[in-house]
């Protein structure tokens, strides 16, 4: 479903005399449908940067990312922006630790929105959103509150619910459980497993090895780039 070949990312910091930072270098891996690929490596080894390159929040410096979309094989590394936006709408989801949302949208609307965008009628989307929020132990009193003011853990669960609700074909997860308690983590994992069984391919980073092992089918070990240059 996805094949990264010789993928590298480096940053040029103009303010620092064009200092070059290599986030990761020559990374290659493959991902099949309905599989979970975990990425493991020490802090600063480039795990988040890989996911961001796939989502195109970062512009890959070299290499290819061939993705088998519904429209055929596309190289995400140099796909035109409009097509990236279309894939983000239709196929590829991203869950990060952080929530960037409008300040005055309710939790329920926020979670229902991605499903609604897929063409599901709003009442149905909201019904599904309620189920998910309930499952993730968000108290019903918060459904109509604004997640912009939620705690970190609550925000993370909103993020997960938003990603899970619309069944993306490919889901990228960057430490989605970092600040969750054990019970919540279990529920998140079981949600992800359900999604995977339904066919979603995933690439994920989990801080906690045990959590990672409970969901990952394969693990990619990334070695840090040595910075002698």
């Amino acid at each position: 479903m996805l094949k990264a070949t010789n993928l590298s990312k480096s940053f040029v910091l103009h303010a620092l005399d064009k200092k070059q930072i290599d986030a990761f270098r020559k990374v290659s891996f493959e991902l099949a449908p309905a599989r979970f690929l975990g990425i493991r490596g020490i802090s600063g080894s480039g795990k988040s940067s890989i996911l961001k390159c796939i989502y195109r929040t970062y512009l890959p410096t070299e290499g290819t990312i061939n993705y088998h979309s519904r429209r055929g094989v596309l190289n995400l590394a140099d796909l035109p922006e409009q097509q990236i936006l279309a894939l983000r709408r239709e196929e590829i989801g991203f869950v990060s630790q952080f929530l960037h949302v409008l300040p005055r949208v309710s939790a329920l609307d926020l979670v229902a929105e991605p499903l609604w965008s897929q063409g599901v009628p709003l009442p149905q989307a909201k019904k599904r959103a309620k189920e998910l929020l309930g499952y993730l132990n968000i108290p019903p009193a918060l459904y109509d509150a604004y997640p912009a003011n939620f705690s970190g853990g609550e925000q993370q669960r909103i993020n997960i619910a938003r990603a899970v609700i619309w069944n993306p074909r490919l889901l990228l997860l960057d430490e989605p459980t970092a600040s969750l308690d054990e019970g919540s983590v279990k529920r998140v994992i079981s949600l992800l497993r359900e999604l995977k069984n339904a066919g979603t391919a995933m690439i994920g980073i989990f801080h906690d090895t045990a959590v990672m092992d409970s969901i990952a089918d394969d693990i990619y070990h990334i070695k840090p780039v040595s910075h002698e240059t």
Partner: peptide, 21 residues
Amino acid sequence: SGLTDQILEDPQHPYTQLLVS
């Protein structure tokens, strides 16, 4: 010019980097 998240998180032009930082 670029995707908004890319402009904000991986700006290429020196001026954009300055603006974002």
